[in-house]
């Protein structure tokens, strides 16, 4: 039976792991490769590295982080952040990443999804969607720049479009829930999951093990991602998986 996946996310800036609360205030939480090994030992099913480097040097460092991680780890991982071209995808996949995640570049140029999918296969292309409820529109809309800019694009329509273009997986972050630790946005996730046929990773809002249980069962998300609660050891991957196992959810 296919198991539900628990995915720690490492935000990496200039080669170091950081985590923003609501993407604004950042704190340094360590060496990415060491942290990746730690999560691997804890039973993480996958890892996501999100490169938030502001400089060219920082992005170059990310390639080394990817290469070192791929040399040390035997679980899959995704790299996102700063992937703007087919060349960027190629660099990360060649360095040992299993998947690349695209967000704003795909919004600006949706054909990037198709190009990547045709070239590397859909399974390598993750489309990251940052969504936030809009009262005005009565639905979830796409936001960029860490939730500050609203686009005239409905989240569910974009999810469908991304999959039609060749996305093999969606990483859906609720900008309402991110950093709140009050649980994932299961209403949003449920709708997206019903709209597409590729795996969906729930992101934004994890505060405890029960939140993972809720999103993996109620919203039927295929995987759930969290960052700060794992980094600051408020809970652990092992603890979350034990909780899920005891509740009858299939985990590795």
């Amino acid at each position: 039976m296919l198991t539900k996946r628990i995915i720690p996310c490492l935000d990496v800036k200039e080669g170091r792991v950081v985590k923003g609360v609501q993407f604004v205030s950042l704190r340094d939480a360590g060496d990415p490769v060491e942290l990746a090994k730690f999560y691997n030992e804890q039973g993480a099913d996958e890892l996501v590295f999100l490169d938030i480097s502001a400089t060219h040097e920082g992005r170059e460092t990310m390639v080394d982080v990817v290469r070192e991680t791929a040399s040390a780890l035997s679980i899959p991982f995704t790299v996102g952040g700063g992937i703007r071209t087919l060349e960027d995808m190629k660099r990360m996949l060649r360095a040992g990443a299993d998947k690349v995640s695209v967000n704003s570049a795909a919004l600006q140029n949706p054909q990037l999804i198709k190009e990547g999918s045709d070239y590397f296969g859909a399974q390598c292309i993750v489309v990251a969607i940052d969504a936030k409820w809009s009262e005005e529109d009565g639905t979830w809309m796409i936001y960029t720049h860490g939730g500050r800019n609203k686009l005239q694009k409905e989240a569910i329509a974009w999810a469908k479009e991304a999959v039609a273009l060749g996305a093999g997986e969606l990483l859906v972050t609720s900008m309402d829930k991110d950093g709140e630790k009050s649980g994932f946005d299961n209403a949003l996730l449920k709708e997206i999951r019903a709209a597409v046929n590729v795996p969906v990773i729930a992101s934004g809002g994890a505060g405890n093990a029960e939140h993972f249980y809720e999103t993996l069962t109620e919203a039927d998300a295929d995987a759930a991602l969290a960052a700060s609660i794992f980094h600051y050891k408020e809970t652990s991957v092992a603890e979350v998986k034990n909780y899920l196992r005891n509740k009858g959810v299939a985990v590795r």
Partner: peptide, 19 residues
């Protein structure tokens, strides 16, 4: 196919850990 014998849909790709 993305749909099992009972007409229930399942995700494609088959992605993740299976025994």
């Amino acid at each position: 196919s993305g749909e099992d014998a009972e007409g229930k849909t399942y995700r494609v790709p088959h992605m993740g850990w299976n025994n």
